[in-house]
Design a protein around this nucleic acid. Structure first.
Length: 145
RNA sequence: CCAGACGGCCGGAUGGCCGCCGUCGCCGCCUCCGGUGCGCGGCGGAGGAAAGUCCGGGCUCCACGGAGGCACGGAGCCGGGUAACGCCCGGCGGGGGCGACCCCAGGGAAAGUGCCACAGAGAGGAGACCGCUCGCCCCGGGCCGCGAGGCCGGUGAGCAAGGGUGAAAGGGUGCGGUAAGAGCGCACCGCGCGCCCGGCAACGGGCGUGGCACGGCAAACCCCUCCGGGAGCAAGACCAAGUAGGGGCGGCAUGCGGCGGUCCCAGGACCGCCGGCGGGUCUGCUUCCGGACCUGCCGCCCGGGUCGGUCGCGCGAGGCGCCCGGCGACGGGCGUCCCAGAUGAAUGGCCAUCGCGUGGGCGGUCGCCCACGGACAGAACCCGGCUUACAGGCCGUCUGGCAUC
RNA sequence: GCGGGCGUGGCGGAAUUGGUAGACGCGCGUGGUUUAGGACCACGUGGCUCAGGCCGUGGGGGUUCGAAUCCCUUCGCCCGCA
């Protein structure tokens, strides 16, 4: 499998932009938001993911643990089914801590499909090939859904 | 065996696969100081409270240092420990418990001010409601009684024992004393004062004396003694990039000396530079001394910039072991070890075995099987304390009770 | 990191000089009015016992004769500055 790099969103501005894009799906164990990456940031073979755990989740231990479980789920699911050039924000819910890990993975897969940025990594593969020929071209635009 | 008191400790273990952060080495790539990898390997990787942020410090900046006054905040029995503390240790005093032991912001109320609601006669150099005692009521105040006298009422004095109010009523209990009473007198207790003894001290003990004066509240104002400059690692320093130390309004001051230049009727005007006499600033306010900085200062408003990286950043009042001093907190010496360093923030996902607890089942008491559970909680500059949270478990010392020998 | 504020019946909010806790409004309950409902009117309304009383101002402790008020500690919520 071609390796897909997963980077982390770190700026508050990025979180606000992804939320404003409006593509959102809530599963029992998590909430997923998605938006196309800005052109300046888009890079082939990369998705960027941010994690959010508010104080509603619990104390610092609970919040950190929720983000770790989400990171583990993302590492398990994203390389196969995420769309390159997209930014995602994964938000922890109260059930994130107690839900069985298999169910959490199912939640993330379903949310990816519903949010529309799923795909067809096979089609994306072709585009990436073309992009590789033009090294400084912008990444895939979120066009063809 | 049961109940309890105090002190100390642990905070599941081992392994496999895939991942995370730091560091070292190798390899690949690049714009080859260095950076980077969707490469490999070795090593290290949260706590007893990392928490709350209630105290005390280190460190950094505000140039800084010294002396005094005012204000503000804090501490408050004595001695010791400590870098320091509001912490700790050992004592003292008071209170609680049969006891082991536990609790206490525990200076000053004769420096002053203030408060003590309601109730009550009186709430602070007090007071007389019900009362107690004595005298008088004129040729007998009224009633009862043969009478001595008794009861009631009025009035003038004395008293504060008893009743009653209250959280608190101006020492307590008892005896004497008295018309009735009163520290009026006496004994004991309490309190004040003086002397002596023990103790570094807080304080304790004894003797004498006073005759009660000194009600409570200072977590009311306050007085006394002691302590405290402010801000905080988003401190602060450097690199890169970049901008405009720009503009407006108001108030105060727009002085002095020297040099140079320009102008004009040798006297001034204007500009520039220097000095820093004068002026201003120096972290709560203020005075003084030294020192530093500025040359217009202060206040308000408009406009521009801020987003990246490196350092600070972990050898420290450090951990562990042994010995010595000390009742102890702790101190000293020797040996040994290096032990997190992130910045949307590192420990996760899956699984196995063992161990612990609870429940159920099986078999003649010790095992086997199954299911469930495993707390409080995550370093963010560092350290010393305090406080709070916490499943389960271990060790030691002591107290009271029951049973047996 | 630094600083400040709040917590009172079911709800919003008084009482803050220490002196009877729950004023006032909303809501709720009962009764009246109406064919019925609304509106309106009257009464009641923290809990336990119901004789007297006891407990109640987020929790715990202290000072005081007496604490919603003062002090300490703790929990929760909110706000400001860098």
């Amino acid at each position: 499998m071609t390796a897909m790099r997963i980077a982390t969103l770190k700026k508050r501005q990025d979180f606000l932009r992804v939320r404003a894009a409006g593509r959102k799906w809530a599963a029992p164990g998590l909430v997923l938001q998605a938006a196309p990456a800005p052109e300046a940031e888009a890079e082939s073979g990369q998705v960027r993911v941010g994690y959010t755990a508010s104080r509603r989740i619990g104390n610092a231990v609970a919040r950190n643990r929720a983000k770790r479980r989400l990171r583990a789920a993302v590492a398990h699911v994203m390389p196969a089914s995420a769309q390159c050039g997209s930014d995602y924000v994964v938000i922890a819910r109260a059930a994130t801590l107690t839900r069985p890990f298999d169910a959490l993975i199912g939640d993330l897969s379903a949310a990816l499909a519903r949010v529309g940025a799923r795909a067809d990594n096979r089609a994306a593969e072709g585009r990436r090939q073309a992009a590789a020929d033009r090294p400084h071209a912008a990444g895939p635009k979120a066009g063809d859904a």
